[in-house]
Structures are given as structure tokens and as C-alpha cells.
Amino acid sequence: MFVLQLGLIGLCIALLPLSYVWVKADDNKFRKLVWLTTFLTLDLIMFGSFTRLTDSGLGCPDWPGCYGTSSPFVAHAAITAAHQAMPSGPVSMVKAWIEMLHRYFAMAIGVLIIAQVVIVWTARLKRRPLHVSPWWPTGILLLICVQGAFGAWTVTMKLQPVIVTLHLLLGLALLGALGWLAARQTPIPVHEPAAARWLPAAVFGLVLLVVQIALGGWVSTNYAVLACTDFPLCNGQWVPPMNFEHGFHLWRALGMTGDGEMISQDALVAIHWTHRTFAVVVVLYMLWLAHKLRRFESLRTPANGVLLLIVIQFLTGLSNIVLQWPLPIAVAHNGGAAILILLLVMLNFRLSSSRPGRAVLPARDVVSA
């Protein structure tokens, strides 16, 4: 019964953006729905980082509900008892609400994606195509189902670092897929075939960014942000003592080595130092790539966005160390990484569409037809 109640909560939340899309004066409601879903997914990723950074991931230690109910209101007695038994533990009423709000919003995103699937397949059956294969939104729906499974494992496996990191990467993959679909529904201002030769460089840039975000997720999920407390040195050394074997042993419990022992400070330093060092490579490459791409009119806006976000990411990353990991800056650092993914996806899409014979047409509005 409580699972049905959870579904109804997600549906009610999703009705707000669906109503907005429906009443908004726009010739292409499907495009607006996709863009709005993309924006809300970005918000969900940032709220997910807030959930993790406030140690609320186990605020409700079961899944999908909270102590077998649909709301912390109903589970008040169980939450209070758990908090009284362990006041410094992971369960409290505030943490329970943070965790459940994250789950509610995730279900609402799922409803919005289901709506997209219904729209594109209806358009296909009525022979009014949206200039996108219906299998693309269908694939996105399957992706969010996998993401939901990893969300469940995040809780049931007690925040195991590799599961939490994969949950983050799948969330970014979902954001990127929605961003590609949104770009597919948006006309490119200028068709510039000469820009197409930069596509391999942009793809490589996206790969570098994903690797760096995976390293950052590994830092965050292992709570290694403050393993190095100074900059540019790490604990007063360019190359401090490090234990890569334990630091990058993937299948292990939080705070433990693969052998079940307490993880050492040297292992946490290895995690932090690797993320920091690889960031230099990513920053230099992104600055070079964005500088080269901004010469093209169709790429100037996302390229300028990359330049701006790289500077912001450097500043927020440095602030996390100098200011001892303040919550707003840590969330902003996670959000900046997600926006960079979107910008790189947009650049890759526009470069791909710049190839001869690959011009993208605006989609027709089958929703209002």
C-alpha cells in the first residue's frame, strides 16, 4: 500500500511541471517538457549531493519508503526511537525528510520521462514524428530505472563508496541523455560544417570530464576532501605518502579497506591527490578546447559557459580545502560539474550536427496538435 502512496506523491509533484508545460504559450510543448525535465534533473542531482553531504543518505535506512511507510510523518515513532538510541547516528527527523524529499523528486522525474515516452510513441503511431527516435526517450526511461536500482543499493549497502559513485555517474548520464534530447529538439542557430573537425577533441574532453567527476565522486563518497589541508601542496609536500592499493580498492565498505580494516589516512590522501592532480590536466584541456571552439558562432555560447564554469570549479574546489568543506560551496562544486556535463554534451551535439547532411530541424508540436 505504501508503495502506491509513494507513486501518488511522485505523480502529484510531477503534475506541477506538466501543468506548467501545458498552459505555457509555446509552439513546441514537447521541447519545453524535455528542457524542463533536464533542468529539474540538474536540480535533483544537486539535491542528491546535498543529501550525501549532510549525511542524510541513511536518514531512512530502508527503501523505497521510510521504515515501511510513505512519509517520515507516519514513521515518526520509529525515527525518534532510532535517533534516541544513537543521537550521533545517521537517523534523525531532519535527515529522514531530506532523504525522502530526494526520493519524491526522483519519482517525479520518472513520471516526466514516462510522459515523454507516451508522447513520442503516440506521435509515431499518428505518423507525426518529433524528429527523434522514440527509442531515445525509451532508453532514458530504462536508464532512470537502473538509476533507481542503484539508489536502492546505496541505502541497502550502507553507502558503499563504489555504489554511491556509480549512482552519481548514472545520474549524470541521465542528465547528459536528457540534454542531448533537448538539444535535438532545438534548432541550431548557424550550420557551420568547418566546426565538425573538432568533434573528436570535444568527445575526448567529455571523456576527461567524466573521469574527473568519477574521481571527485570517489573523493566525496570516501570523505577524503580534507585529506589534504593545504594548496598547492598536499600536507606540506608535492608528493605526500600515499596508499593507492587501499585507496582505489573498489569493492569495500565505507571507511574500510578490502580486508575489513580501518582505511588509513595515506589511502585517503591518495584519493584526494589523484583527483587534484588530474584536475590540472582537465582544466588545461578544457580551457584550450573552449578557446578554440568559441570562434564558431554556433558554439560560442556553450564554449563561453565552459570557460566560466572551469574558473568557478577551480574556485569552489579550492574553497572546499581552504574553508574546510562548507556545505553551500560543496554543493555548488557538485552542481558545477553537472552543468559542465550539460555544456560538453551541447558542444558535442552541435559539432556532430555540423557535419554535412546532418542539419537538425525544429520539431513539430504534436502535444498541442
Score class of each variant (00 low, 15 high):
14 A>F: 02
311 V>Q: 03
199 L>T: 04
128 R>A: 15
96 A>V: 15
47 F>L: 14
284 L>H: 03
334 N>V: 06
208 L>N: 02
158 K>A: 14
20 Y>H: 14
61 P>E: 09
347 L>N: 00
273 W>Y: 08
34 V>R: 10
31 R>S: 15
240 P>S: 13
256 M>E: 14
343 L>F: 11
362 P>S: 06
280 V>T: 08
271 I>K: 07
190 V>L: 09
190 V>F: 11
14 A>H: 00
218 W>I: 00
40 L>M: 11
84 Q>D: 10
264 S>H: 12
7 G>M: 04
193 P>K: 12
353 S>L: 01
233 L>V: 03
343 L>E: 01
236 G>A: 05
352 S>D: 02
9 I>S: 02
260 G>K: 08
245 E>V: 14
31 R>A: 15
53 L>G: 03
306 V>N: 12
129 P>I: 03
254 L>D: 01
327 L>F: 02
10 G>T: 02
218 W>Y: 05
79 I>L: 07
54 T>D: 13
220 S>N: 03
28 N>E: 15
107 M>I: 08
326 P>H: 08
274 T>W: 06
359 A>S: 05
200 P>S: 01
185 Q>A: 10
216 G>K: 02
163 I>Q: 06
92 S>P: 04
350 R>H: 03
66 C>I: 03
302 P>T: 01
307 L>S: 12
350 R>F: 01
223 Y>N: 05
144 I>H: 07
